[in-house]
Amino acid sequence: SKICLVCGDEASGCHYGVVTCGSCKVFFKRAVEGQHNYLCAGRNDCIIDKIRRKNCPACRLQKCLQAGMNLGARKS
């Protein structure tokens, strides 16, 4: 099975251009559409994995963007 390129959980498919799990898919959509201005309490290098993905939305969003997630991406 495929793994989420953001948190490493089991992926549910290709979302916004990137193979991700459902949790990261929903997080990314809400983060971008809600125009959240997340700030990292650390050094913008928090570990984002299945267990810690909820700890720092700033670093999670950064990881989504680095993976290439794009709200305008067509479903493939």
Rank of each mutant, 00 (worst) to 15 (best):
E33C: 06
R52T: 10
V18W: 02
K63M: 08
V19W: 09
L5V: 04
D49C: 02
R30P: 15
I51V: 15
D49M: 03
K25V: 11
V26K: 13
L5C: 08
C14F: 05
S12I: 15
C21R: 00
C4G: 01
G68P: 02
C59R: 01
C59M: 00
G42A: 13
T20I: 07
F27K: 00
L65D: 09
R43E: 13
V19N: 15
A58L: 04
G8H: 03
Q35A: 09
H15G: 13
E10I: 04
T20D: 02
C59D: 02
Q35Y: 06
D9L: 03
H36A: 14
C14V: 13
F28W: 15
V32W: 03
I47N: 12
H36Q: 13
L39G: 10
V32P: 01
Y16H: 12
G17R: 10
N37V: 14
I48C: 03
L61H: 03
H15C: 04
S12A: 05
D45N: 10
D9M: 05
C4M: 00
K2P: 05
Q35W: 04
N70F: 08
N44M: 08
G13P: 04
A41T: 10
V32N: 08
D49F: 03
R43M: 13
R52S: 10
K2F: 03
R53W: 11
Q62H: 13
N70T: 10
L61I: 04
E33A: 03
A58P: 06
S1W: 05
N37M: 08
S1Q: 13
V32G: 03
N70K: 15
G42I: 11
R52A: 11
F28K: 00
I47L: 14
K75N: 07
K25W: 07
C21V: 00
M69Q: 03
C4R: 01
A11S: 10
S1K: 05
G42N: 11
I51P: 05
A11Y: 03
G22K: 09
Y38I: 08
L39Y: 09
N37I: 09
V6I: 13
H15Y: 09
R52Q: 14
C24S: 00
R52E: 05
R43A: 10
F28E: 01
N44W: 07
F27C: 01
K2V: 05
C4H: 01
Y38Q: 06
A11K: 06
G42Q: 14
G72C: 13
N44C: 11
T20K: 01
C14N: 10
N44Q: 10
I47S: 13
K25T: 06
E10M: 04
P57K: 13
G22W: 07
M69V: 03
G8C: 03
Q35R: 13
A58C: 15
Q62K: 15
D9W: 03
R52M: 05
Y16P: 05
G68I: 03
G34W: 04
G34L: 05
Q66K: 11
D9K: 03
R53L: 07
V19H: 07
D9Y: 04
C7M: 00
Q62W: 09
F27Y: 02
Q62N: 15
P57R: 06
K2E: 08
L65N: 09
R52V: 06
K75L: 09
R53E: 15
C14I: 11
D9H: 10
V32R: 07
F28D: 01
